[in-house]
Design a protein around this nucleic acid. Structure first.
Lengths: 349, 349
DNA sequence: CTGTTAGCGCTTTCAC
DNA sequence: GTGAAAGCGCTAACAG
């Protein structure tokens, strides 16, 4: 027990396992056992140790545990940005699920910068986290495969593109949600239904487009590419798309925006044009984030179970970390149409 | 070098400092020096080591570093919830500032549960993070003082209540922002200006109320408690407050809501009543979060520099961690009135 | 059921 | 300038 070689323990130092062991008159191994609930400890000893632990408000040092046991109790979460509620709701679900496991979330926003994401992942995977949740990752399939080959355990939540089959993923039923939304508009009597989509190379766009087309086809409505506008998921993109739509000679009577911010933007541009929602034009969004409750009229939208997607991601990751077998490597959670006030009957014919 | 006593290194194990040292033909101490840029290393050696590091994509194991050096490179952030954009914007600022320091953020939402926050803090402070940023903490002043006495370093961002002078804090110029907003409404000719406040025991409410009263006093307008309604920062609270206001015999011609969601709710209830914004009633919010851009008409509001508050929190914390002296323990960032479309001339008299 | 012990990977004296 | 070595706090064999 030589003197400390270098400053360490912060001033108001917390108890270490050794101190607890001394106070309780047992070995540190025993303390470790009761803390981790592993191995056999007599009730008597356990109680004694627990009481000392409580008294000293002992909690294990995560760095030490991480180093010695190879698990840190930390899960890395990379995502493009924190702010849009789409992401923050997912993160909230993740955080809640991890809290229940007494694990924490290490947040790593990538700002859509591919290099940043790669660097972040590299650091996260090396000793700082046990695994990762990649929300809407920029990574290509091959990069993800490389990550896997390094032995990093991760789950992709809402894959941006189609990726390696062996990567566990969680996503929402995009195409069926889009189908429901479009079908609903058709039932209301709309025939000229525009779509404002996200970037064309994203899976979410692709699948929602598929649902949209499927519903139109079922109703025998010919899709018109002129009223399908590609945008960028942002309010402003929705405004521009909405404006463009109503400069057409034959404007739509309904708009299906592929996410809520786009729907909000579209609604703003429609209103700015002196048209009424839903009397003149109906609008449906996708996501059911808070945006849909902020606008007037309240937005009809397709609900994605975002928090649930986060929780599910955690649950898959835990199975991965425990090397448990997987019944389902790819989970798709159901979406649901939420009818509010932005949709109404189509034009009388 | 005995055999591994227990499974550790994950399958696709990353390089350790020892391996890098071997490959580079130097000691691990030298590798450590070049990684940390500490101590003297000849250019020649440094280059050699750096090249090996790059080649093997080596990054230090944070747990090991945390254990040995007493710093983890992780900062704990506790906050009530992630989701309201008020919080997520702060977090985004924090994350960005930490990224620049190659540090990470450990997120710990407390869901407003005081016990959860206490437990979380206890765990975070013990070896898992170097310090903390407490956003709108539930903790009482005395609890915070206890935390300090344990040697945990933290900064409070947007204190909920008045706390110990020695705790560094970052907040916004609440009272001056409220003063600006109210004054603007007065200049527009409004005399009957309602306030929808947050919970009365919160500093933000208190200070905004002070600004509101100050502006009224300056203009010689007597405040009327009947049109000051306490609410809860939520859209729905704003709806209720707005409704209540217009059941009054003498309703206001302008509403100053103490945050944006409240303003949105108030606006919704005003519109639901068949009144127009801003022709019949003007509405001002506080925050300038995305909500203000989602409503129609766009919301006039007081901008709080939320991301900047996050960054500033990090900057204070870093000073704390480096034991550097403080020129300012309490930073108050300026607010600014953003005039949009929800405000107009008061009633002609 | 409990204690002893060997490290986990890294940083930091302290010699050289 | 560089290396040797101790030790951070904890876990998991292993022995008893």
């Amino acid at each position: 027990m030589a003197a400390l070689p270098h400053k360490n323990g912060r001033s108001g130092q917390r108890a270490t396992i050794r101190e607890i062991a001394e106070f309780a008159g047992v070995s540190i191994a025993t303390v470790s056992r009761v803390v981790n609930g592993s191995g056999y400890v007599s009730d008597k000893t356990r109680m004694a140790v627990e009481s000392v632990i409580r008294e000293h408000r002992y909690t294990a040092n995560r760095s030490a545990r991480g180093l010695s046991a190879g698990r840190t109790g930390l899960v890395g979460v990379t995502l493009p940005r924190i702010h849009p509620s789409y992401f923050s709701v997912i993160v909230a679900g993740v955080a809640e699920a991890l809290y229940e496991l007494d694990m924490r979330i290490v947040l790593a926003p990538t700002l859509h910068e591919h290099d940043r994401e790669v660097g972040l992942l590299e650091r996260l995977m090396h000793g700082t986290t046990d695994g990762g949740l990649l929300v809407l990752p920029e990574e290509s399939g091959s990069e993800l495969r490389t990550l896997m080959s390094y032995g990093y355990r991760f789950v992709v939540v809402d894959p941006r593109m189609r990726i390696d089959e062996r990567v566990p993923t969680v996503s929402a039923a995009n195409s069926s949600g889009a189908d429901q939304a479009t079908r609903y508009l058709l039932e209301l009597g709309h025939r000229r239904i525009a779509a404002i989509t996200g970037p064309g190379d994203m899976m979410a766009t692709e699948e929602r487009l598929r649902g949209y087309h499927a519903a139109l086809a079922t109703a025998g409505v010919l899709p018109d590419p002129a009223i399908v506008i590609e945008s960028d998921w942002e309010v402003d993109g929705g405004r521009r798309a909405g404006a463009a739509l109503f400069e057409l000679a034959d404007p739509p009577t309904a708009i299906f925006a592929f996410n809520d911010p786009l729907a909000v933007g579209a609604m703003q541009s429609v209103v700015a044009r002196g048209l009424r929602v839903p009397e003149d034009v109906s609008i449906v969004g996708f996501d059911d984030t808070v945006e849909s409750e902020f606008v007037t009229p309240l937005l009809t939208t397709v609900r994605q179970p975002l928090a649930e997607m986060g929780r599910m991601g955690v649950s898959l990751l835990m199975r991965l970390l425990e090397n448990r077998s997987f019944e389902a490597l790819h989970v798709e959670l159901a979406t649901q149409l939420i009818v509010r006030a932005s949709t109404g009957a189509g034009p009388a014919r």
